[in-house]
Design a protein around this nucleic acid. Sequence first.
DNA 1: CTGAAAGCGCTTACAG
DNA 2: CTGAAAGCGCTTACAG
Lengths: 345, 345
Amino acid sequence: MVTLKDISKETGVSLTQVSRALGGFSDVNEQTRERVREAAQRLGYRPNSIAKGLKTGQTGFVAMVIPSDIDASGREIMFDMVVGISQAISRHGLKFLLHVVDSNADVTGAFDELYYGGGIDGFILTELEEPDPRVSYLKERKIPFVVHGQDAVAEHFFVDLDNFRVGEALAGRLLDAGHRRILFLNGNDHRIYSSTRTAGARRALTDRGIAPETIHVSYGPMTRARGREAAVEWLRSDEPPTAIIAGNMMLARGVYDAAAELGLSIPSDLSLVAHDDVLIQYPAEGFDPSLCVTRSSLSEAWSSLATLMSRAIAPESPEIEHVLMRPELVEGASVAEPSGSASAR
Amino acid sequence: MVTLKDISKETGVSLTQVSRALGGFSDVNEQTRERVREAAQRLGYRPNSIAKGLKTGQTGFVAMVIPSDIDASGREIMFDMVVGISQAISRHGLKFLLHVVDSNADVTGAFDELYYGGGIDGFILTELEEPDPRVSYLKERKIPFVVHGQDAVAEHFFVDLDNFRVGEALAGRLLDAGHRRILFLNGNDHRIYSSTRTAGARRALTDRGIAPETIHVSYGPMTRARGREAAVEWLRSDEPPTAIIAGNMMLARGVYDAAAELGLSIPSDLSLVAHDDVLIQYPAEGFDPSLCVTRSSLSEAWSSLATLMSRAIAPESPEIEHVLMRPELVEGASVAEPSGSASAR
DNA sequence: CTGAAAGCGCTTACAG
DNA sequence: CTGAAAGCGCTTACAG
C-alpha cells in the first residue's frame, strides 16, 4: 500500500506539501505539484479514506437502512431504487452502503450504530410514511439525512416529484377531453404521494367546477395484477368509467390487459393516462396505442438526491434544501372524447 | 461522541486498560473491567470502527459489486440475494456494502478503489461465470473474497449448493418411479450450476443403465413464464414427457400453470419434481398437490458465506475453505408412475 | 494486572 | 511557497 510518506520519500517533498499538492491547494508551487502528481501516479497511490475519515470526520460513506421484511411489491421497486441511488451516489464521489435489518423496529438502532461507530456520514430515507419515526429520530440527533419524498412539515433535505401536479395534470387532461366518470388507480393509501396525487386530482375538479364524485379513487399496490383486476371490476360495474388514471406504468399495463380481456379498445371505448417514472423495465414505448403520460425520470431524482446528500453532510451544518421535480405532460393516442353520452354525468 | 479517553478520565483507569477491558482481554482485573463496562454503558460509548480500522487494517466492511445493467430475471433474484447476504453479514458483526457500477467492465476497477482506498476488507462474488475475470483479478492481488457458486478450479473460498446431487436426486426420483420421457427445465446454459445439475442428472441415468435421451435438458431463465411456455410446448409435442424436473420453484409454478391450461392433472398425467431454495416469496406450501423437491435453504448458504468471509479477511492469510451444501430430498404428492405405457421407452 | 508510548495515514493550524 | 508538529481514536508491544 502506497502512502503519502512513500511519495514524500520518493520526491523529497515534505509530507505536508505532498498532502497539499494532491489536495489541490493553491499555495503549492506548480512544479512541486507536478512532481508529486507524477510520483503518485507512478507508484499507484490511492488516498486512504479511512485515515482521512478519522482526521476529518468524513468518510464519504452514505447509507440506506431497510428492513428485510419488505413485501413483494415493495421489493420490485426497491431494487431499482437501490441501484439508481447507488449509482448516483458513486458519481458524486461518495460511497453507498445498503444495510438490511431484521425488522422495522431495528432501523433507528442501526442509524446509531452506523453513524456513531461505523463511519457513516449520512443517511438516505425513502418510502416515507407520515409521521415517520425515522425522521424525528435523525433530526433530534442532528444526524444528516436526505429524503426521497416529503411529509407535511418537511424541515429537512428532500427530493420529490411534484405529485400534486401529477394528479392535477392527469385528471385535468381527462376532464378537458370531456370525461365525467373517471377511475383513479392510485398507490397505497398510507403513502404520502398517493394522497398528494388525490389532492391534485381534486384541485383539477374544483378548478373546473366539476363534482368531486366524478373521479373515484382506488388505493392499492401499484402492480400490473392489481391494475388488471381493479380495471375489470370497475369496467364491469353498472356505471363503468369512461377513462382511467393509472399511478404508474405497471398499473397501466394491467389496464391494457383488462381492456383486451373485455374487448374494449383504447381510446375509443376507454381513455387512459398514467404517470411514467421512466424505468427501463417498463418503457412507455411498449404501449399500443401510445400512452399519454406525465413523465419525470426517477434517475434524475436520484441524481438530485446525491447532490443534496453531499451538501447535507458538509461540516458547517448547511441550509436545508428541497428539490421538487416538475412532471412533463407527454401526449399519446390513449385519450379520446368519451363515446356516446360523453358530456353527461 | 464518547471515546476511550472519556471513559479513562471517568474511571481513572488508563486508556490502555480501558481498551483491553472492553476488548475482552483476560489480563484485566474483573473489578476494573466491570467499572469500565459500567462507565462505557452509562456514557453511551460506541467503538469507532474507523479508528480501529486505521490501526488494525480491518474495518469490518465487506462489499459486493454489481453492474447496473442486470436483466429483469437477474434483478428479481438479486434483491433477495442482497438482502439475505446483508443480513447474514450483519449477524457476523461485519457490515455489508452494496456498490453498483455502470457496466461489467468497471467491476474490477471498483475492487481496487474500494479495497486500497475505501477501507473494504473483502468482497463477495455471486453468479459466477467460467472463466470469471473477477476471480483471477482478486486472486492476483491477494484481495480476500468469498464466492457463492464454484468454478472448475475453485482455489478460493466458496459456498455452494451441491448441484450435482440436486440433478442426480431429482432425475433419480423420476427414473425410479418408472419415467422414461423426462423434460429438465434447467437454468441459463452459461451458469455453472446449470451444467453441474445436468451432469448430475446424466449420472443418475448411467448409474441405472438408462439411455441419455431419456432426459431432455432445456436451458433458459428460471421464471414462471418460461416454465409455463416450455412445459406447454413440450407437453403438446409428439412425444410429450411424462415427468418434468424444474430447476426452481418459479419454474415449477409455471409447470403447474401449464398443466392447468392443458387440463392435465398432477401426478396422474404428469409427474413433477423441483429444487426448492426456501425463498419466502415462493413457498413450497403453495403447491397442490404438494411438490416433491430437493431442498436447501439459500439463507443457510448466506450464513455460511458470512462465516467464510470472516475467516477470509483474517490477518494471517488463512487456509482456503469450502462449504458444499447437501440438498435434502423432501417427498410430495407430485410424483406417480407414468400412466399407460409406463415402463416403455 | 497496569500504564506510558508509539504509530496506523492522513489533515491542518502554525511558524517560518 | 515550505516543513515540523500535533492529533483524529484506536491497538498493542513493552516495561514494569
